[in-house]
Amino acid sequence: MNIFRLAGDMTHLLSILVLLLKIYATKSCSGISRKTQELYAIVFMARYLDLFTDFISVYNTFMKLIFIASSLAIVWCMRFHPVVRRSYDRELDTFRYFFLVGASFALALVWHDKFTLQEVFWAFSIYLEAVAILPQLVLLQRSGNVDNLTGQYVFFLGAYRAFYILNWIYRYMTEPRFTRWIAGISGVVQTALYADFFYYYFISWKNNSKLKLPA
């Protein structure tokens, strides 16, 4: 474990806590893409198939359980919670994410570390996570002003993978034979997708103005 990876995991956890706070405090999920939340639930379930077979550390197992449980809880809230579900922007959250799932799985069948069920699903989860934010970014562009907690949620979600890139660079420089092309390239693509969001987020922070993404 290095400081970059710890910062990445803590930032990721923070993004989830901010999202839970927004939903719990405002009893609303307006501005949140349910499709992105469902994609993340698939990402974690596909990535952590080794949850019960490979024990890495208490930290590793604990975080995996947190990520799976929180993503499923958020999807449940947005679908079935009697109050929260009413504020879901159904008519704005229309990204046809089936293609993202299909393309990621097809790519995982072609490009993986080993052709085993666990490795193919792991690569699938890496590719899917890289594009999982797209429905959320589209929803932000369509819905007018973005509330602070939603903006912070997306910001931390984007920042965590940037920390992971620093972690991979650090491990590449300090560990012999360390290579992680699948996660590394996907991580760069994933972080790049946030580039314009980060720009407008920085502008809104600098001008102390409401975050507004151009349509």
């Binding site: 490979d54 590793n60 995996k64 990520f67 992971y164 560990e175 996660a183």
Partner: peptide, 10 residues
Amino acid sequence: VVEGNHHDEL
């Protein structure tokens, strides 16, 4: 865990 295998990361 074998160092360098990716299952040590989240």
